[in-house]
Nucleic acid binder design. Structure first.
Lengths: 250, 250
DNA sequence: AAAGGTCTTTGACCGCGGTCAATGTTCTGT
DNA sequence: ACAGAACATTGACCGCGGTCAAAGACCTTT
């Protein structure tokens, strides 16, 4: 059940910022950060929020690309699949990131929630019109898209040319960085512990490996004392430098 | 020797379109297609042309991203490399395509000519200002960037999950499509012959394989009668459907 | 035409990572 | 607390594609 209904009926009355943008967790990071409170209220008139459960799909590859928007909380995956069912996660979406593609008729990739998530959605057509009116937002979208392109191209190198060991080590470093605030560390610069938002199977889909290979490489890193696996989906990075070294050399 | 000097000294005098844009081969396809003749003349004032030889590099990964522009003729490659020298071609640039990245300080990838090429270059900073003034051009750049992102993500699936056979077959189909006018065909719908602009080594760099594997797969396709290799860098596609089938299934 | 380079093909070998299968662990709902 | 499902680990095996090496084709240059 979404919370779209919570949107107030009279959003742009007076100077006050309409709910729920006023308390939005990504107000300062999403594309909306380019908008004044008034502009934001206008944009909000065409948007609505949606809560998603783990595993729920927002867009299916091949369907009309009907919505786009900002991720508020949780993590989404972008999945490419071949006709015979092989899958590859081609992107991860974090809070503050933009999801979907304006100016594109058909969605090329399936977008699914990896965790519970909350998104702020806009129908594509009116959102494109909003880009016309808010030049700074379009500019930021261009910059974000250029960044995403660089990220995707960097991952092409890794997918094609890195060993399984390098891929897994690199992935753990990425996730550690992402974990940020939610990670915890007993001693400054000491071991860092955090939860992975992905299953082994999903990690395999990101890295272009199989579940078994991911699992074996994790075990190898554990045996080498580079990481620890306290149980559940938690990981502890015991020796960041060693992990870095393994991420860079075969 | 570039032809930058050929740029006329008084480009925006009168209504006539300044050389060399008037006869530009990609006038109707490049970002400039969004500009009126007058606007184009203004933009041309900050740009210049450059001819490149096979193997010549336009931008080095890690250097300041100083220029961007449009490719007029030839083919360029975008190369990602790891610290220990492994390489991956993450993009090919064809005539009419945009090269370089506005709003990005450091070039992430090395840009090198695969064939003789001609580019129309702009220093990055004034080009960014031109994007401010010409909204339609910025819009088109955004659309092109979104397309490029989709292409890159599609190739992530292929790099990670396709067999060598599928990669080579798919690559040949792509190149056949690109060859377009320069390809020749004795009978309508009959065998199609064209020249690859890439060496076996470069094809390997595109597909995430080795030279030897690319060569072996080409031979396999030849022995199966799907393609012919008349010599030099030429390829003949004898049975397009069979090639398509091999591109899609392992 | 000969010489030298680069690019390509082919062969022999082997190791990484995929596949198949069984067991162990963690999460979920009642 | 228990049952069942989903997820993770581990082992045995093997094939695809990488590596090393040599020979052949093609393209310059003089």
């Amino acid at each position: 059940m979404g919370v779209g209904n919570c949107r107030p009926l009279f959003y742009n009355v007076g100077m006050e910022l309409a709910e729920p943008c006023a308390h939005c967790a990504v107000r300062d990071r999403a594309l909306c950060s380019t908008l004044s409170d008034d502009e934001l209220a206008q944009l909000n008139a065409i948007g609505h929020r949606r809560e998603m459960e783990r595993g729920e799909t927002l867009l299916w590859a091949g369907d009309d690309s009907v919505v786009c928007g900002n991720l508020i909380s949780g993590v989404l995956k972008l999945v490419a699949a071949s006709a015979d069912g092989r899958e590859q996660i081609v992107g991860l979406v974090y809070p503050g990131d933009f999801v979907g593609q304006p100016y594109v008729e058909k969605a090329e990739f399936t977008v699914t929630a990896l965790t519970e998530a909350e998104v702020c959605l806009f129908p594509r057509a009116p959102f494109e019109r909003a880009l016309d009116d808010h030049h700074a937002m379009e500019r930021l979208l261009l910059q974000r898209t250029l960044q995403a392109l660089n990220t995707a191209r960097g991952r092409m190198l890794s997918l094609a040319r890195s060993s399984a060991q390098e891929k897994v080590a690199g992935f753990l470093l990425d996730m550690a960085e992402r974990a940020g605030t939610s990670a915890c560390r007993a001693v400054p610069d000491g071991p860092l512990t955090f939860d992975l938002p992905l299953t082994r199977g999903q990690i395999a889909d990101v890295l272009g490996l199989t579940i078994e290979t991911v699992s074996r490489q994790m075990t190898r890193l554990k045996v080498a004392g580079v990481i620890a696996l306290p149980g559940g989906r938690a990981v502890t990075i015991c020796d960041r430098d060693a992990l870095q070294a393994r991420a860079e050399a075969a």
